[in-house]
Protein backbone atom coordinates (compact mmCIF):
# COMPACT_ATOMS: atom_id res chain seq x y z
CA UNK A 1 0.00 0.00 0.00
CA UNK A 2 1.59 3.24 -1.08
CA UNK A 3 -0.31 5.34 1.47
CA UNK A 4 1.50 3.74 4.40
CA UNK A 5 4.27 5.79 5.94
CA UNK A 6 7.48 3.77 5.91
CA UNK A 7 10.05 3.73 8.68
CA UNK A 8 13.39 1.96 9.05
CA UNK A 9 14.13 0.80 12.58
CA UNK A 10 17.55 -0.27 13.86
CA UNK A 11 18.13 -3.86 14.91
CA UNK A 12 19.62 -4.27 18.34
CA UNK A 13 19.11 -3.09 21.86
CA UNK A 14 17.55 0.26 20.92
CA UNK A 15 14.65 -1.53 19.27
CA UNK A 16 13.10 -2.86 22.46
CA UNK A 17 13.03 0.56 24.09
CA UNK A 18 11.80 2.12 20.91
CA UNK A 19 9.04 -0.45 20.52
CA UNK A 20 7.69 0.32 24.00
CA UNK A 21 7.47 4.00 23.14
CA UNK A 22 5.95 3.41 19.71
CA UNK A 23 3.28 1.17 21.24
CA UNK A 24 2.44 3.90 23.72
CA UNK A 25 1.94 6.15 20.68
CA UNK A 26 -0.44 3.59 19.17
CA UNK A 27 2.04 2.19 16.64
CA UNK A 28 2.29 -1.60 16.82
CA UNK A 29 4.97 -3.09 14.60
CA UNK A 30 5.44 -6.76 15.35
CA UNK A 31 8.76 -8.19 14.15
CA UNK A 32 8.08 -11.64 15.52
CA UNK A 33 10.30 -14.56 14.51
CA UNK A 34 12.78 -13.45 11.89
CA UNK A 35 10.48 -11.00 10.18
CA UNK A 36 12.17 -7.85 8.94
CA UNK A 37 9.02 -6.13 7.69
CA UNK A 38 5.96 -5.36 9.80
CA UNK A 39 2.85 -3.31 9.10
CA UNK A 40 0.36 -1.55 11.34
CA UNK A 41 -2.54 -0.82 9.03
CA UNK A 42 -4.46 1.04 11.71
CA UNK A 43 -1.59 3.43 12.36
CA UNK A 44 -0.79 3.51 8.63
CA UNK A 45 2.86 2.62 9.10
CA UNK A 46 5.12 -0.06 7.68
CA UNK A 47 8.42 -0.73 9.44
CA UNK A 48 11.63 -2.29 8.14
CA UNK A 49 14.22 -3.74 10.46
CA UNK A 50 17.70 -2.91 9.19
CA UNK A 51 21.25 -2.88 10.44
CA UNK A 52 21.98 0.38 12.21
CA UNK A 53 24.84 1.35 9.91
CA UNK A 54 22.69 0.66 6.81
CA UNK A 55 19.75 2.72 8.01
CA UNK A 56 20.86 6.06 6.50
CA UNK A 57 21.26 4.38 3.10
CA UNK A 58 17.67 3.10 3.11
CA UNK A 59 16.27 6.48 4.11
CA UNK A 60 18.52 8.46 1.78
CA UNK A 61 17.41 6.38 -1.20
CA UNK A 62 13.78 6.77 -0.16
CA UNK A 63 13.22 3.04 0.41
CA UNK A 64 12.08 4.00 3.89
CA UNK A 65 10.75 7.53 4.27
CA UNK A 66 11.49 7.72 7.98
CA UNK A 67 14.09 6.19 10.26
CA UNK A 68 15.44 6.10 13.79
CA UNK A 69 19.18 6.55 14.01
CA UNK A 70 22.03 7.94 16.12
CA UNK A 71 23.88 11.09 15.10
CA UNK A 72 27.14 9.13 14.95
CA UNK A 73 25.86 6.94 12.12
CA UNK A 74 24.09 9.83 10.38
CA UNK A 75 27.26 11.92 10.42
CA UNK A 76 29.38 9.17 8.89
CA UNK A 77 26.81 8.65 6.13
CA UNK A 78 27.29 12.21 4.89
CA UNK A 79 23.68 12.41 3.71
CA UNK A 80 21.17 15.14 4.56
CA UNK A 81 18.13 14.17 6.59
CA UNK A 82 15.24 15.99 8.21
CA UNK A 83 15.59 15.81 11.99
CA UNK A 84 12.06 15.33 13.30
CA UNK A 85 12.48 14.45 16.95
CA UNK A 86 15.36 13.75 19.30
CA UNK A 87 14.62 10.73 21.45
CA UNK A 88 14.99 10.93 25.24
CA UNK A 89 16.88 7.63 25.28
CA UNK A 90 19.65 5.84 23.42
CA UNK A 91 22.04 8.78 23.74
CA UNK A 92 25.72 8.37 24.34
CA UNK A 93 29.01 10.33 24.22
CA UNK A 94 31.66 10.53 21.50
CA UNK A 95 34.93 10.58 23.41
CA UNK A 96 38.65 10.70 22.84
CA UNK A 97 40.62 8.26 24.96
CA UNK A 98 44.19 7.19 25.56
CA UNK A 99 46.05 4.67 27.70
CA UNK A 100 46.29 5.50 31.36
CA UNK A 101 49.84 6.84 31.17
CA UNK A 102 49.13 9.20 28.27
CA UNK A 103 45.80 10.16 29.81
CA UNK A 104 47.31 11.18 33.14
CA UNK A 105 49.89 13.26 31.29
CA UNK A 106 47.23 14.98 29.17
CA UNK A 107 44.70 15.46 31.97
CA UNK A 108 47.39 16.74 34.35
CA UNK A 109 45.44 16.23 37.54
CA UNK A 110 41.92 16.85 36.21
CA UNK A 111 39.44 14.50 37.82
CA UNK A 112 36.89 14.68 34.99
CA UNK A 113 37.64 14.94 31.29
CA UNK A 114 36.84 18.32 29.67
CA UNK A 115 34.08 18.67 27.06
CA UNK A 116 36.26 20.03 24.25
CA UNK A 117 39.79 19.98 22.89
CA UNK A 118 39.99 23.73 23.52
CA UNK A 119 39.41 23.22 27.24
CA UNK A 120 41.78 20.28 27.34
CA UNK A 121 44.53 22.25 25.64
CA UNK A 122 46.00 21.29 22.30
CA UNK A 123 49.59 21.65 23.57
CA UNK A 124 49.03 18.96 26.20
CA UNK A 125 47.71 16.63 23.54
CA UNK A 126 50.67 17.26 21.25
CA UNK A 127 53.24 17.04 24.06
CA UNK A 128 51.91 13.63 25.08
CA UNK A 129 52.14 12.22 21.57
CA UNK A 130 55.40 13.43 20.04
CA UNK A 131 53.97 16.54 18.41
CA UNK A 132 51.30 15.02 16.17
CA UNK A 133 47.85 13.61 16.74
CA UNK A 134 47.03 10.13 15.47
CA UNK A 135 43.62 8.70 16.17
CA UNK A 136 42.12 5.28 15.48
CA UNK A 137 38.35 5.25 15.09
CA UNK A 138 35.28 3.89 13.35
CA UNK A 139 34.09 7.48 13.02
CA UNK A 140 36.59 8.87 10.54
CA UNK A 141 34.41 11.65 9.10
CA UNK A 142 33.39 12.94 12.49
CA UNK A 143 36.95 12.78 13.83
CA UNK A 144 38.56 14.46 10.85
CA UNK A 145 35.95 17.22 10.80
CA UNK A 146 36.14 17.76 14.56
CA UNK A 147 39.88 18.47 14.44
CA UNK A 148 39.93 20.28 11.11
CA UNK A 149 37.18 22.70 12.21
CA UNK A 150 39.54 23.70 14.97
CA UNK A 151 42.47 24.03 12.61
CA UNK A 152 44.24 20.98 14.05
CA UNK A 153 46.02 18.50 11.75
CA UNK A 154 45.13 14.90 12.56
CA UNK A 155 46.01 11.46 11.20
CA UNK A 156 42.94 9.25 11.26
CA UNK A 157 43.21 5.46 11.05
CA UNK A 158 39.98 3.67 10.19
CA UNK A 159 39.13 0.60 12.25
CA UNK A 160 35.90 -1.35 12.14
CA UNK A 161 35.84 -2.69 15.69
CA UNK A 162 37.78 -3.28 18.91
CA UNK A 163 39.13 0.23 18.62
CA UNK A 164 40.44 0.01 22.19
CA UNK A 165 43.24 -2.21 20.93
CA UNK A 166 44.88 0.60 18.94
CA UNK A 167 46.66 2.33 21.87
CA UNK A 168 47.28 -1.01 23.61
CA UNK A 169 49.08 -2.44 20.58
CA UNK A 170 50.76 0.85 19.67
CA UNK A 171 48.86 1.62 16.45
CA UNK A 172 47.87 5.12 17.60
CA UNK A 173 48.11 6.88 20.97
CA UNK A 174 44.49 8.05 20.81
CA UNK A 175 41.11 6.65 19.89
CA UNK A 176 37.75 8.29 19.25
CA UNK A 177 34.78 6.10 20.10
CA UNK A 178 31.33 6.00 21.67
CA UNK A 179 31.49 5.68 25.42
CA UNK A 180 28.53 4.72 27.61
CA UNK A 181 29.74 3.33 30.93
CA UNK A 182 33.47 3.33 30.16
CA UNK A 183 33.87 -0.26 31.36
CA UNK A 184 35.43 -1.47 28.09
CA UNK A 185 37.95 1.35 28.27
CA UNK A 186 38.82 0.54 31.88
CA UNK A 187 39.20 -3.16 31.09
CA UNK A 188 41.84 -2.20 28.51
CA UNK A 189 43.58 0.33 30.79
CA UNK A 190 42.30 3.27 28.77
CA UNK A 191 40.78 6.52 30.00
CA UNK A 192 38.62 9.25 28.47
CA UNK A 193 40.64 12.43 28.02
CA UNK A 194 38.03 14.55 26.29
CA UNK A 195 34.33 14.41 25.50
CA UNK A 196 33.92 15.54 21.89
CA UNK A 197 30.13 15.43 21.43
CA UNK A 198 26.86 14.24 22.88
CA UNK A 199 25.31 11.70 20.53
CA UNK A 200 21.54 11.60 20.40
CA UNK A 201 19.14 9.30 18.61
CA UNK A 202 16.64 11.00 16.32
CA UNK A 203 13.64 10.22 14.20
CA UNK A 204 14.75 11.29 10.73
CA UNK A 205 13.13 11.62 7.33
CA UNK A 206 14.22 11.66 3.74
CA UNK A 207 13.90 15.39 2.89
CA UNK A 208 11.77 14.87 -0.23
CA UNK A 209 9.58 12.33 1.56
CA UNK A 210 9.02 14.80 4.36
CA UNK A 211 8.00 17.52 1.93
CA UNK A 212 5.45 15.22 0.34
CA UNK A 213 3.97 13.83 3.57
CA UNK A 214 4.73 16.58 6.07
CA UNK A 215 1.22 16.77 7.54
CA UNK A 216 0.92 13.04 8.30
CA UNK A 217 4.52 12.82 9.47
CA UNK A 218 4.11 15.78 11.83
CA UNK A 219 0.98 14.18 13.24
CA UNK A 220 2.75 10.86 13.89
CA UNK A 221 5.78 12.60 15.38
CA UNK A 222 3.54 14.63 17.70
CA UNK A 223 1.91 11.39 18.90
CA UNK A 224 5.29 9.76 19.47
CA UNK A 225 6.59 12.86 21.25
CA UNK A 226 3.56 12.86 23.58
CA UNK A 227 4.09 9.16 24.29
CA UNK A 228 7.74 9.79 25.15
CA UNK A 229 6.75 12.57 27.51
CA UNK A 230 4.23 10.31 29.26
CA UNK A 231 6.71 7.47 29.71
CA UNK A 232 9.34 9.85 31.09
Amino acid sequence: MSDLLTIALPKGRLLEQLDTHLQEAGIHLSFSGRKLVATDDTAGIRGFLVKNSDLPTYVHHGIAGLGVCGEDVLYESGYDFVRLLRLPFGGTRMCMAADNTTASSVLAGRTTPPDSIETLGLDRLLDASDGSISVATKFVEFTRDYFHRRGIPVDVVRLNGSVELAPVLGLTPYIVDLVETGSTLRANRLEVICELAQIEVSIIANPAYYKLHHARINEVVARVSDAFAQIQ
Binding site: H60, H61, G62, N206, P207, A208, Y209, K211, L212
Partner: peptide
Protein backbone atom coordinates in the same frame (compact mmCIF):
# COMPACT_ATOMS: atom_id res chain seq x y z
CA UNK B 1 4.27 27.89 0.71
CA UNK B 2 7.40 26.70 2.48
CA UNK B 3 10.06 29.14 3.72
CA UNK B 4 12.51 26.33 4.34
CA UNK B 5 12.99 26.52 0.56
CA UNK B 6 15.58 29.26 0.28
CA UNK B 7 17.66 28.16 -2.70
CA UNK B 8 20.42 25.61 -2.56
CA UNK B 9 22.99 27.77 -4.32
CA UNK B 10 24.74 30.82 -2.98
CA UNK B 11 23.63 32.86 -6.01
CA UNK B 12 19.90 32.62 -5.20
CA UNK B 13 18.48 36.01 -4.26
CA UNK B 14 14.67 35.89 -4.30
CA UNK B 15 12.03 33.24 -4.67
CA UNK B 16 13.21 29.64 -4.49
CA UNK B 17 11.22 26.54 -5.25
CA UNK B 18 11.41 22.80 -5.56
CA UNK B 19 9.03 20.20 -6.94
CA UNK B 20 8.63 16.79 -5.33
CA UNK B 21 7.04 13.61 -6.62
CA UNK B 22 5.98 10.43 -4.85
CA UNK B 23 8.66 7.81 -5.42
CA UNK B 24 11.52 10.22 -6.11
CA UNK B 25 14.16 10.28 -3.39
CA UNK B 26 14.92 13.96 -3.97
CA UNK B 27 13.38 16.99 -5.67
Amino acid sequence: VDFSEFGAQSYHTGIAFRAYAEGAEAA
